[in-house]
Amino acid sequence: MLIDINAYVGNWPFQQMKYNTCELLLDRMNKFGVDISVISNLNGIFYKNTQSANEELHQEIRSARKFSDRFIPFAVINPIYAGWRDDLETSVKKMGMRGVRIYPKYHDFGITDPACIELVKRVRDYGLPVAFEYRMVDSRQRSWMDIDYVVGTTKREWNLKDILPIVKAVPDAKYMILNYANAAVLTPDEMNLVKTADLIFDTSGRTITNMSEFLKLYGTNKFAFGTHSPILDYLTGQLRIESLQPSEADERVKEQLRSGNAKKMLGLS
């Protein structure tokens, strides 16, 4: 079984996206053997009022049974925008959202802003995961209208060290850290935090140049299949798992990566 923990529908305003509706993504899943996808609405990154994006996603998934059977929706919540507590409750209780994606850079707040901490705690209290991204796109090909966290400048792209402070602030929440980019040398404390926290990375990010080494470094329970679709190609995240040699990962470990770790994170059994 294959569960993609990092996919989207919706638009990226600076470049045309293919396969960015439930229908098109489902075609992709069927073509390449993906059973279930965790999805959120890209529009939520750009709408000031993210709840409109959550409503769009909810309606799209509800529009056909084949969608609600194969997609796990995540809400996008901005905790420094009015009404977000109501939005979170509505998303979880009325719309069946199974987690929350948080965009500190796009929504412009610090990752340990009290509002962000409160949001993570509230999601934790629902028993659901929160998801943070290293980045959405490579800053070197960014549009002039995109955020200005840029490689080579003093306001660089994020690495894991930039995300860990929230894990430290709310160590008992569930975390999905997505689109692994930019290497960072962790201190022993930071590494310990990654290992002890309920935290997984997905396999879509470019910094995972050798999957086997990442499994050795963080543990086989720390990764789950992810595509970052429709922004990144649909197969590379899968290739990182399937091209592991038997000496590097046996079938049991591969199943963990394909779906086992994701199921645990998402509360599926």
């Binding site: 079984m1 059973d35 279930i36 609600s68 059977d69 194969r70 796990i72 979880v92 209780k93 199974r98 629902y126 028993g127 659901l128 199921k263 509360g267 599926l268 059994s269």
Partner: peptide, 11 residues
């Protein structure tokens, strides 16, 4: 495999 075959726990 699909969500139909899985038990969804949580809220």
């Amino acid at each position: 495999m699909s969500l139909a075959g899985l038990i969804v726990s949580g809220p």
